[in-house]
Design a protein around this nucleic acid. Structure first.
Lengths: 255, 255
DNA sequence: CAGTGGTCTAGACCACATA
DNA sequence: ATGTGGTCTAGACCACTGA
């Protein structure tokens, strides 16, 4: 049974009442006081318990609905939503991605060099043109079959010697404490160029999934800019999408 | 200046007042009666014009805010969608997605029917084969150019009449309180079939981005199963990815 | 300052679920 | 029949914006 600490509700605080109520309920859920599938007390009950109008209680509940924590059934009640499986879109390099799919990752090196950034790289990585970067171009294989062409650019200061990167770029970054925590990816369908077709053992004009990724440290510094061309017939990309709210709330709570 | 047709508001209709008001405002925006950057009449004015309480007018406006059509500025006013942000992977239908990209969404109907689920649909939507579903097949356009072919299947019980779905499936679902909060998408690059090429004004063998989506209510019930074929030359898909450890850290910080 | 959105209340009626 | 969520109202006060 849920027990709301009425003391924690304070109309004098600048935080709106409905958010205070939402926070209380969220905590009860997080601490396991009420479990998945359980019904919340009815809106009128909550309203009495907390000494707050039903309209306001409803607004609190609506906040949690949008976060996916609760679900309502007209005429029946309000319930704790089942826990959501998450591992959809993780920030993982090719190596970890293939292992997750039960395949054996590998590489064939095309290029490995240090140099100055192109304008595109400078823009993507927020660098000035005199800060050196390292470039890594490989054909990536899964179970020894070519799967993708990957061209990664990383500011040199995030890596030691250039041959620290043997198979996994992310392992090398992690070893230096520079593993990115967040990434933005852009996906696009296109056709294989003759060079790509040859490298991937595909006929000319085959379908290619292009993925462009920028990855960042927790403080927002760009660490990696990678353009990949995946075989359309062998690779699919799975992602989870949510109706906003949860992220916004977390940012508010964090500040 | 916006002029609300008070006649079109009818408390006797089964549609809630706040949705009727939202529809009116949405139409005024669509028809260009009020333009980007213009201020909406104040909530109190609207309330008087339409003869409806301010609370209800606010609820209508909140609906449009979530669709990204309006933006509010405390102390100043409510304005027509001044700018488009593209927060990474939101759960949005085609209509909202295109609006976010600053394009005008449209549809050409191919099919609209009620029927029994195929085995694939039954599996994707967790249905038994005797529960009717509705199917919606459309060519989706952006600024009147074909952008994608979309085939959506929704269990009939989540919708009323089949022609409740005029332009936006998600609006129709929201009106019935069945808007999904979470979705799983699978993306794959492939080539256009002759039929697809014709429907999308593409040459045969052009690049196609296939997106398959299942969307769920907060309690995990599947609501929508959609397969789309997007023009590879016109559409890209942007998504944000996070490291798991980073998520955990945010949860710690939040409590 | 006047006008705007932001929050809150107490009470009402309806539609739906469950027993 | 009872209890639940869904909608709606009229009026109030606060916080912010902008002239």
């Amino acid at each position: 049974m849920l027990k709301i600490d009425r003391q924690r509700i304070d109309a004098a605080k600048p935080t709106p009442l409905y958010l205070q109520v939402a926070d209380l309920i969220r905590d009860e859920i997080k601490d396991g006081v009420i479990r998945i599938g359980d019904a919340l007390p009815s809106e009128r009950e909550l309203s009495d318990m907390v000494g707050i109008s039903r309209v306001t209680v409803r607004k609190a509940i609506e906040t949690l609905l949008r976060e996916g924590l609760l679900s309502r059934k007209h005429g029946s009640g309000t319930y704790i939503a089942p826990r959501i499986e998450q591992p959809a879109a993780l920030l993982a390099g090719f190596t970890a991605d293939m292992r997750n799919r039960g395949q054996q990752p590998g590489s064939i090196w095309l290029e490995r060099e240090t140099g100055l950034p192109t304008p595109e790289e400078a823009l993507a990585l927020s660098l000035s043109i005199d800060q050196p970067i390292m470039r890594f171009a490989r054909v990536r294989t899964a179970n020894d079959e070519p799967m993708a062409i990957e061209r990664a650019s990383v500011p040199a200061r995030f890596l030691g010697a250039i041959d620290d990167v043997s198979t996994s770029l992310y392992s090398a970054l992690e070893a230096r404490g520079c593993r990115p925590v967040r990434g933005l990816q852009r996906l696009q369908a296109s056709l294989a160029t003759p060079d790509e077709a040859a490298a991937l053992s595909l006929p000319a004009g085959a379908a290619i999934l292009r993925i462009e990724r920028r990855a960042f440290l927790a403080d927002g510094t760009p660490v990696e800019f990678t353009r990949s061309a995946y075989r359309g017939d062998r690779y699919d990309f799975v992602t989870e999408v949510r109706d906003l709210a949860a992220d916004k709330r977390m940012l508010e709570a964090a500040k």
